[in-house]
């Protein structure tokens, strides 16, 4: 009898002891990295999307339902970025706390100020446009700062007992990040106003921060594969540009097309290896941004060496 009582009471106690640590789920690795800074040792952060996959086209595997079922807070990019895979998982999660509109559902596009590139006309003739604006906000560290603080506030309201810990963690992270932002801005200052050709409109916020100019995109419109005639126009346009721009592609985009455009236009290709955690060097948000900016700066240097710096070999690649 006694073992049975113990066994049954274990079931009663288990939910409470499990609640002792906070459980956060995030859709994208970058958001997971920011959440991890805030949560620290107070809980666990589970990331749904793998770091090497396009955030629009993540597999909504049923196995991801478990993490959502147990999460107390879901952090997602919003702006319909995850519309192709998150709703099914959210419905399967049977977790009322993280449904849209609940305190446990944090849409980071509400934290970072107005989204850029809100289409004046929502028409798919313009590609797979996001009606609420461009949702790729996390590559701007000033916006990432707001996201980290927003996560801390949300966690503080959900878990009042450890509110101070979340706010402390966020403050410490933001202090580190602010120093880095100043250093990054200093490092990228020579490249201000430089042109770049992203594959997809996913670097808009990075450009907004660093004052880079998007010359054109490899895709003619979002989500549409480029035709040869579009590529020809693009290459001719890029060739004309002074100083020479760089082509930037994330790893999940068509590398053959990106490489061809860069080679034919005679400019370097900068490959972004994916999201946070896609390589051994970019395991947290700061090291990820460090890596990204190093690649970008190397690309700009290779395209057009800044005065006073040694010329670098231009083999069309800046890895």
């Amino acid at each position: 009898m006694r073992p049975l009582v113990l066994f049954l009471s274990a079931f009663l106690v288990a939910p409470f002891s499990a609640r002792a640590e906070v459980r956060v789920a995030t859709t994208l690795p970058a958001l997971g990295a920011l959440a991890r800074e805030v949560v620290g040792a107070n809980g666990t952060v589970t990331v749904l999307a793998p770091p090497d996959q396009d955030p629009h086209f993540v597999d909504g595997k049923p196995t991801l339902i478990l993490a959502l079922n147990r999460a107390q807070l879901l952090v997602h990019a919003g702006g319909d970025l995850e519309a192709g895979w998150l709703p099914t998982l959210l419905s399967g999660a049977r977790n009322g706390d993280i449904q849209p509109g609940r305190p446990g559902n944090l849409d980071v596009s509400t934290l970072t100020g107005p989204l850029l590139e809100v289409p004046e006309k929502v028409d798919r003739a313009l590609g797979d446009v996001h009606p609420r604006g461009n949702p790729h906000v996390w590559l701007d560290p000033r916006r990432a700062r707001k996201i980290a603080l927003g996560i801390a506030e949300r966690l503080a309201s959900l878990d009042a007992e450890r509110a101070a810990a979340y706010r402390d963690n966020a403050r410490r992270f933001v202090e580190r990040l602010d120093e880095k932002i100043a250093a990054w801005e200093e490092r990228m200052r020579p490249h201000r106003g430089r042109g770049f050709v992203p594959y997809h409109k996913s670097l808009t916020y990075l450009a907004d921060w660093l004052g880079l100019a998007e010359v054109a995109t490899v895709e003619p419109v979002p989500g549409i594969a480029p035709s040869p005639s579009h590529l020809a126009r693009l290459i001719l346009e890029v060739r004309k540009r002074e100083p020479r721009p760089v082509v930037v592609a994330e790893r999940w985009h068509n590398q053959r097309i990106a490489r061809t455009v860069a080679e034919k236009a005679g400019v370097p290709l900068v490959v972004i290896p994916g999201d946070v955690g896609s390589t051994r060097e970019n395991g947290d948000y700061i090291s990820f941004m460090e890596d990204l900016l190093r690649r970008l700066a190397a690309g700009f240097e290779a395209a057009e060496p800044a005065k006073g710096s040694a010329p670098q070999p231009t083999d069309g690649q800046a890895q």
Binding site: P114, L115, L116, E117, V118, P119, E120, V122, P131, R132, G133, A213
Partner: peptide, 23 residues
């Protein structure tokens, strides 16, 4: 060229803030 694009970007940003959400 650059000036016009710069202004266009500025305008679209200014308009984006004020544009009502489409849905």
């Amino acid at each position: 060229g650059g000036d016009q694009e710069e202004l266009e970007r500025e305008l679209s940003r200014a308009l984006a803030v004020e544009a009502p959400p489409p849905r």
